[in-house]
């Protein structure tokens, strides 16, 4: 053993950081994928449902959007622990983050579906399309295209919010860096590296989103 408890950053730490990077990427992709699919279903349902169901469902989704994500993570992981079914932090984090994503995605998709003019749907029906044909060939393609920039915005915020899953013990990037900081006592170098990673992922995508938005505006 060395003379000091603190050892400086070395190349052998890169594997540890890489695990954190991969875990951040994995849980973000899972949450974006599951959240998008669930959000699509819920958003479509809300665009179709009657006012009563809509208000009820809206209230539930509203809770997911009005309680801090970190509290949701703590509550869910404590709850499943207390009832005797503790889950892996990755599974717990994925469930909570996916549901949180779904709450935002459903609003995005609902807006998309409602932006498709009723006259277009009526026209498609009068051409002999079935209900599901109008969904598959008219409402989905047109509605989804309109909300692509907003979808990207939510996806980007999910990548950033995935950092909070560290609170329930998932070894994502920020948590691995925190552990490295407590060993090396070199917070600035490590944090700048972490910040750069998020920036390099997020910035080009946000530029692309702005580009698409500008193209669609005309």
């Amino acid at each position: 053993m060395g003379t000091s408890f603190f050892t400086p950053l070395s190349w052998s730490d890169s594997g540890f950081i890489l695990t954190g990077v991969l875990n951040t990427v994995t849980i973000s992709l899972v949450a974006i994928l599951v959240g998008t699919l669930l959000g699509l279903a819920v958003g479509f349902f809300r665009a179709e449902a009657n006012k009563f169901t809509n208000t009820l469902l809206g209230a539930v989704l509203d809770i997911l959007r009005s309680v801090p994500l970190i509290i949701q993570l703590i509550l869910f992981s404590t709850y499943i622990g207390a009832v005797g079914h503790p889950l892996d932090p990755f599974v717990t984090g994925s469930i909570v983050l996916s549901l949180y994503t779904m709450a935002f995605m459903s609003e995005v998709f609902r807006g998309g579906f409602e932006s498709v003019h009723q006259s277009m749907v009526t026209a498609a029906r009068s051409l002999g399309m079935s209900y599901w044909q109008t969904v598959a060939h008219i409402r989905l393609p047109i509605g989804l295209r309109a909300v692509f920039p907003s979808w990207l915005g939510v996806a980007l915020s999910v990548i950033k919010d995935s950092a909070l899953v560290s609170v329930i013990g998932y070894m994502e990037l920020l948590r691995t860096s925190e552990q490295l900081i407590s060993r090396t006592q070199q917070p600035l170098e490590i944090l700048i590296g972490v910040g750069l990673f998020y920036f390099i992922v997020s910035y080009p995508l946000s530029l692309y989103g702005k580009y698409v938005e500008r193209k669609m505006a005309i």
């Binding site: 980007l156 950033k160 919010d161 950092a163 909070l164 560290s166 920020l174 925190e178 900081i181 070199q186 917070p187 600035l188 944090l191 700048i192 972490v194 910040g195 998020y198 920036f199 997020s202 910035y203 946000s206």
Partner: peptide, 23 residues
Amino acid sequence: VEIARNTPALFQIYMAYFGLGAF
């Protein structure tokens, strides 16, 4: 603007709490 929009809020808090210690 771009750093604020493209990095997690938790990162900013760690930066302020641990990172500024280097200065």
